[in-house]
Amino acid sequence: MTAILLISSALFCAGVYGLLSQRHAVGVLIAIELMINAANLLLVGFGWRTGGAFGQSFALFTMAIAVAEVVVGLALILLMYRSRGDVQVDQATELAQ
């Protein structure tokens, strides 16, 4: 179990690193996916440890949601590209205005 936890947290932290260091919006999306994967791994891992179908069921749900999220995210990236002409996350500072 420790192994799964360690691997999962390592993956998650890799995702965090990506999330903070990526400039391209798609890169950010990848990082998020990676983190979701780490979470999924954890779900499956705990499901494996305690038995029963709950871990896998929720992992499945998460997967579906993640896919949906990617779709919306991509649509947003497209929109961002259309309205701003680039997809640089560090350039998009409209929130400050």
Partner: peptide
Amino acid sequence: LQTGNVQDYLYAVF
């Protein structure tokens, strides 16, 4: 502090 840059906020969060 509110740069508007999402990543700066994420720094704060994480």
